[in-house]
Nucleic acid binder design. Structure first.
Length: 429
RNA sequence: GGGAAGAUACCAGAGCGGUCAAAUGGGGCAGACUGUAAAUCUGUUGGCUAAGCCUACGGUGGUUCGAAUCCACCUCUUCCCA
């Protein structure tokens, strides 16, 4: 299966320019995907582009990751555009270094192979470009008519709301096109890939290369990733799902994939894992026979957690998940190492209570409201208790329960819980 | 500029001067069921020292034994006509 067939099978091919497949079959081809360095970590939305590059490299071609140090300052009008913050050089360098580390888990940058991945920053060549030389060397080759015909532009000036767009945003496609031109000249890069919303910007690049150099350069896009329920992919209530374990703990990362709906999981496992088609087809069949086992989700979560984080992080996440969601008891809880509990419950509300108070014992209502501040009012605690929603160390309790030293696990903590998913951690100190 | 209607809890939206912490729907939270899903059913959704009390129906005053409800003024919103 070649690169294009592979993408097709995985549902990652939205559109490509005629001749793209021929070019890829002809020779080792260099292709790039652009990433905005807006943060010092990638999030899973970036992963689609990264996986395209991964498959590309697997197929023997050479991937380039272009960090949009310059373009990130402008703001792409495709889709909605908020004013971008201008990032200074230092911040971009820092972000680049962090992002590269994450990319290394997917792409091979260091080997001596001819198709080792390359990372570049368009700020390096854009920063010295003077406005005059830009409009003379680049602007001369593209007509405004051509630029106006792009969807991203048309929508803004002729669409329902007619927001209008600044000249800066209008120029965006030219700047991105300049990147393509530069990479073509510097690295013989003949293909640009991206999400389907990038089609217009990418083709401006090939157009520029054709007019200026008389050479052919190609475009390939993948569909935008969606969720079956129409929500935005990669977002949770708490925001983006990051690859950086500091921003999104491995446990939460694992949980994100595990919680995918069935239809999404089937789609995502093709896009985000390298499992071969036979294996995936097999998994899908099994999953349909016994959907409650959620094989797809588990496999998906496993593949990604191990790749992005590590085997140990994966093991810990699985263990934590069974602890939290399985029918675990107080005894199970006591066997888990303290450090691990802390990492599992990273991000849940915490409070510390002195051992003195517990020696005397304290009523559950006061404990959960006044003492720890987990609940804003006592009325709410009482209500939850009536609903049988409160557990201490995995054991349901009622209104008359008194917290004492006996409830402390490992001399260090008490685990309180409202319902199934809301945890509160009390540290003793 | 002239006229009309309105402002109630997270949102929408009821509310004879006492029995209104305020109907109903949505949303939220929890329980059951389940696959850590969806759907469904049930409970709950101002605070407290809890059969009691306190604070709340745009703001400020007033009438009254008693006001979300009546009156005056103010602020804001919406609609209609110029």
């Amino acid at each position: 299966m070649n690169f294009i067939e592979n993408l097709k099978w995985r549902g990652m091919l939205h559109d490509m320019m005629p001749g793209t497949e021929e070019q890829l079959n002809k020779e080792m081809t260099t292709a790039y995907v652009g990433i905005d360095p807006t943060a010092d970590s990638l999030h899973i939305g970036h992963l689609v582009g990264v996986m395209m590059l991964k498959h590309l490299q697997e197929a023997g071609h050479r991937p380039i990751v272009l960090i949009g140090g310059a373009t990130g300052m402008i703001g792409d009008p495709s889709g909605k555009s908020l004013e971008r913050n201008l990032l200074d050089e230092e911040a971009i360098k820092h972000n680049m270094a962090c992002i590269k580390k994450q990319l290394e888990k997917f792409l091979d940058f260091d080997s001596d192979a001819p198709n080792a991945a390359i990372m570049v920053n368009n700020y390096d060549w854009m920063k010295d470009f003077s406005f005059l030389s830009f409009i003379r060397d680049i602007g001369k080759h593209i007509t405004v008519n051509y630029m106006m015909s792009k969807d991203s532009v048309k929508k803004r000036i002729a669409g329902e709301d007619r927001e209008g767009m600044s000249f800066t945003e209008f120029s965006y496609q030219l700047v991105q096109g300049t990147d393509f031109l530069h990479l073509y000249q510097a690295y013989d890069c003949k293909l640009q890939m991206g999400g389907s919303d990038q089609w217009g910007n990418i083709t401006t690049g090939s157009e520029l290369i054709k007019r200026k150099l008389g050479k052919e350069a190609f475009a390939l896009t993948c569909p935008l990733i969606t969720k079956a329920d129409g929500g935005k992919f990669g977002k949770t209530e708490s925001g983006n799902v990051w690859l950086d374990p500091e921003k999104t703990s491995p446990y939460k990362f694992y949980q994100f994939w595990l919680n995918c709906s069935d239809t999404d999981a089937e789609k995502y496992i093709k896009i985000f894992t390298l499992l071969d088609p036979e294996r995936i087809t097999d998994l899908i069949t099994q999953h349909n026979e016994a959907p409650h086992l959620r094989l797809l989700q588990k496999e998906l979560a496993k593949e990604l957690t191990i790749r992005v984080h590590s085997q140990e992080d994966y093991d810990a996440a699985v263990e934590a998940s069974t602890l939290l969601f399985g029918n675990s008891t107080t005894d199970n809880l006591k066997h888990v190492p303290f450090e691990m509990l802390l990492s599992v419950f990273e991000g849940v509300p915490q409070a510390s209570v002195s051992a003195e108070i517990l020696k005397q014992g304290i009523g559950i209502v006061d404990f959960l409201s006044e003492t720890t501040g987990f609940f804003p009012s006592k009325g709410e605690v009482r209500r939850s208790l009536k609903e049988n929603a409160i557990s201490i160390n995995k054991q349901k309790v009622d209104e008359n329960y008194t917290i004492t030293s006996n409830d402390v696990i490992d001399d260090k903590l008490i685990l309180a819980q409202k319902g199934k998913k809301n945890y509160y951690l009390v540290l003793i100190g």
